[in-house]
């Protein structure tokens, strides 16, 4: 999922302070799962903003709405009946959702309430960790299902580096060495030979280095 965290309240308050009518839009997808921008978080933020405005003796008309997805035009279209009644939109989606709302409602100020973090997985309840950097050319098939790009601090393709100590990364003892994990898993699978294969320099053009990316599926695109 795409993970996110709520921005500091002061930053959100500064965005919406000039307005009296706010449409607060949550998203039912990734940000709901990582407890950052789902219906619950929308309710909490609306209440917090209401109290912040009340303290300044200002009235705030805030409408809460949580879309199935904010990164799809079909769902963003559902705001059409609400947007005109509000001065600004405060989005609790990831950056994709915020931009989709801003693209659709061009004359309406749209602000982000979250900081989008990374593509990750839940390690435990309440803990999420980075798992994928979307490099565009997946190597998990040869690295035992553990990504050296997202999980090695140096993104080393033929590791580990000299900073790997007792299975931990030198930058932080809480971070596991990705290459230690890769070795352990390959050994468990009886695929130690794969470790000996030298991976060539990665072609980063499939990643962000090739500029903003698009996927075009001609069988689906109309």
């Amino acid at each position: 999922m795409i993970t996110a965290e709520r921005k500091p309240m002061q930053e959100i308050i500064d965005y919406v302070s000039p307005f009296n009518r706010i449409l607060l839009v949550g998203c039912n997808e990734c940000v709901t799962v990582c407890a950052a921008g789902g219906r619950k978080e929308v309710g909490l933020l609306a209440s917090a903003l209401q109290m912040s405005f009340m303290q300044r003796g200002k009235a705030l008309d805030i409408q809460e709405i949580t879309l199935e997805r904010q990164c799809d035009p079909e769902y963003v279209e559902q705001l059409v009946n609400y947007v005109d009644r509000y001065d600004a939109v405060l989005s609790m989606a990831c950056g994709c959702g915020v931009q989709e709302v801003a693209r659709r409602y061009k004359t309406k100020p749209v602000f982000p309430a979250l900081n989008t973090k990374f593509m990750g997985a839940s390690e435990h309840q309440g803990i999420w960790a980075e798992r994928c950097q979307g490099c565009g050319d997946c190597v998990l098939g040869v690295t035992g299902g553990i990504c050296p790009i997202a999980r090695c601090s140096k993104r080393i393709m033929n590791g580990p580096c000299g900073g790997s100590t007792k299975g931990k990364c030198e930058i932080n003892p809480d971070i596991e060495c990705a290459w230690q994990l890769i070795w352990d898993r390959l050994k468990m699978l009886g695929l130690e030979d794969r470790y000996e294969e030298i991976m060539e320099a990665k072609d980063w053009r499939t990643s962000r280095d090739g500029g903003p990316r698009r996927i075009v599926r001609e069988d689906l695109a109309s």
Partner: peptide
């Protein structure tokens, strides 16, 4: 008791 119950009581 959810967070929203506490917030709403204060609000």
């Amino acid at each position: 008791i959810d967070a929203i119950h506490i917030m709403k009581a204060l609000e």
